[in-house]
Write a protein that binds this DNA or RNA. Structure first.
Lengths: 197, 197
DNA sequence: ACCTTTGTTAACCATATGGTTAAACTAAAC
DNA sequence: GTTTAGTTTAACCATATGGTTAACAAAGGT
């Protein structure tokens, strides 16, 4: 593993755990097992290192979502595929959702700047498709944007608020993951069940 | 307004916007229109000031939830009441959910310490009631904890991830609030529709 | 062999930041 | 009018933190 990779991995761990403001360059250096000066040699400064991490995180999530949203399948199939693939991915990267959400809230200007980014999650196609399937009588009349919000909420929220969820319903990490596995199908079923005619 | 109140309000604004790590005592002082030394005169140090703010925030959310969860009504009524009252409250305090979630994730030890707090959101009664209504054939057989997660997810997530949501489905603040008003009823309908026999 | 490029480190620097102190001001109490 | 208790401030301090520098080492090319 190159030094740059060591730094990148260390930075990802620290930034995702503590956020931009809470992360310390020294802690990243320690985590990477290198000298602090190497950080600046490889990544100029904290902000650029952070941007690299954030872009990478965001860039992992977005294309995956778009691929499903813009495919040729039915709305029902897209919903099922989305919950399955998103939850599978996030179980392996549990810090990602909270990290992205947190930094978007704390730093809206910076983030909005690349919300025009080509690969941003873009639900336009899916929204049009939902409208069409409503017209065709496949889906009950609902507001497509509300439906989208429902899908994202049910899928992403438990990971974003993991600590709160764990504390509230008193479960261990293992039980949490089991529940999430179950959600892959239960969310899709729940939503499809409530919108199909 | 007393100085202590001025500080408290200022601290709430700054902490909720930037989080504990990102907040600066000087910024809080400026926001309150007083000298930085007053902060330490009134609240000893940053951590205690933060605790006061966090407890207050948390203390506003939790009892409200418990009152509904532990009342004498049916599960369907509880769901309806919850979405209405929670969304009404959070529209007036839009930073709260993200704030609580963020600090719980960044600071799990500290937060877990008062998860035993008498007034923490406690869904035990509601979970038992859901199990009973399933046995009685009122509700389809589902996992109560999953149902709880669904309710919280759909209600809280849009506020916790407000910036991401706004960016993704391209809406203004006003449109966002309209959507949330609509969600007061749509979420309850959606969920009840999907679990009733 | 010698130079250049790249990677790496310890030591250092400037500033930001949380926190302290002592003095000044205010207003009620005597 | 003086005392006393509570407020408020400017100036200061110690440390943490992001960032820099200069020296050094290893590898590659000529």
């Amino acid at each position: 593993m190159t030094t740059e990779e060591k730094i990148f991995n260390a930075a990802r761990i620290v930034f995702q755990k503590k956020g931009f403001a809470g992360a310390r360059m020294q802690e990243i250096a320690d985590e990477a097992g290198i000298n602090k000066a190497m950080l600046h040699y490889c990544f100029k400064n904290k902000e650029l290192l952070f941007k690299a991490i954030f872009m990478n995180a965001f860039g992992q999530l977005a294309p995956q979502i778009n691929e499903i949203f813009n495919s040729q399948e039915t709305v029902f199939d897209k919903i099922t595929k989305f919950t399955h693939s998103y939850i599978s991915f996030v179980i392996l990267n549990p810090y990602l959702p909270q990290f992205v959400i947190q930094e978007m809230n704390n730093n809206p200007e910076f983030v909005m700047s690349f919300m025009n980014y080509e690969n941003r999650p873009n639900p336009a196609v899916l929204i049009a498709q939902i409208e069409k399937e409503i017209m065709d009588g496949i889906i009950r009349p609902i507001h497509p944007k509300q439906l989208l919000l429902d899908i994202f909420s049910m899928t992403v929220f438990p990971f974003a608020a993991k600590m709160m969820v764990k504390g509230m319903i008193q479960i261990s990490d293992a039980e949490f993951n089991l529940m999430m596995e179950e959600r892959k199908t239960s969310i899709a079923e729940q939503i499809i069940n409530s919108i199909k005619k």
